[in-house]
Nucleic acid binder design. Structure first.
Lengths: 170, 170
DNA sequence: TTTCTCATGTAACAAGTTACATGATTCG
DNA sequence: CGAATCATGTAACTTGTTACATGAGAAA
């Protein structure tokens, strides 16, 4: 049920339309919780049915502006502090590692080299948006920087681990 | 389509029944790719329909033993070396971080403290299975140790990051 | 003989993906 | 006027979760 809370979280910063949320998602949450446009609109409908958000205004082109309700805020806070985050995170990158014996050693080393490169690229990307996010003083930016720091640290261990792993293949 | 390849990967080590695979999953892959029993049996059926595995023996209690086919091995190798792993990994733990402004500062610090503790517990758990996995000389164990090393390094940054983040909340 | 483990499956539902459909308004 | 952008939605499909159903064979 995390998409639901992602939407509630964005709306906790102020009212927005589905279209607004979509764009907001793309520049913020999509790195930790991707969502598609159709998923978003469907979720807004369900959220409204459940009374966690309200349609507070209707604009041109059928635009509907949503705002979080008291019940929605309560649900959001409850989710943040009382619900345990998922303990296992799926990784098809690590899944492949288990089966590397199906490749010959040089290909297996290549796999790790490639993962190291990808991690390096992600690091570069995160460094680049760091300057961009640096400015925002809003809640999302402040906490987004904490999340970004996680990404940076994660990227570094990924790169180092992949380099180490390459050396493990004899 | 990763479950499919997880099953192919396990079968690449030798024939097994759905029941065998289930137990194997629990002690190995479930940490990087959880799957339920019903998912497994369904996938085996689809895999057989697609000609990537064959039923090579039938035993007591309706037991069916599956073996990977040449086509299955080819598909597995192709997936490992030619298909890019997913670039974004969902994290509802990081998602919550974006919305921490909804809690008061002490609660937010508590959140990070709790995450640091969880990371420490996971580290302990991984240290404990490390000795256990240390022995196996089979392919799955050798590469499993490389995956485990990833888990250990990840756990350490998670703990350190959470401790750092706690200090960021003013 | 009763209980445990082995063993496979179905059904209902929730979540996520991909593609398509449609139309209003704004801007150059 | 034509193109870009704004704006919402539906449909088909795949993947994952939860719960239930059933029964054979082994061991106590």
């Amino acid at each position: 049920m995390s998409l639901r809370h992602a939407v509630l979280g964005l709306l906790s910063e102020g009212p927005a339309s589905g279209y607004d949320l979509m764009k907001l998602f793309d520049v913020s949450l999509s790195n930790v919780w991707p969502a598609t446009q159709s998923q978003l609109y469907a979720e807004l409908g369900k959220l409204a049915d459940a009374g966690l958000v309200d349609v507070v205004a209707e604009g041109p082109r059928g635009r509907k502006e949503y705002a979080i309700t008291e019940a929605g805020l309560a649900e959001l806070r409850h989710w943040i502090s009382d619900v345990e985050p998922a303990s296992v995170q799926r990784s098809d990158m690590l899944l492949r590692v288990f089966f590397l014996a199906q490749l010959d050693p040089e290909q297996a080393r290549q796999y790790f080299r490639h993962q190291a490169e990808l991690a390096a690229k992600r690091l570069e990307y995160m460094e680049s948006i760091r300057g961009f996010v640096e400015e925002g003083g809003d809640n999302l930016s402040v906490n987004g920087r904490i999340a970004l720091e996680y990404g940076l640290r994660l990227g570094r261990v990924q790169r180092e681990w992949a380099e180490w792993a390459e050396g493990q293949i004899r």
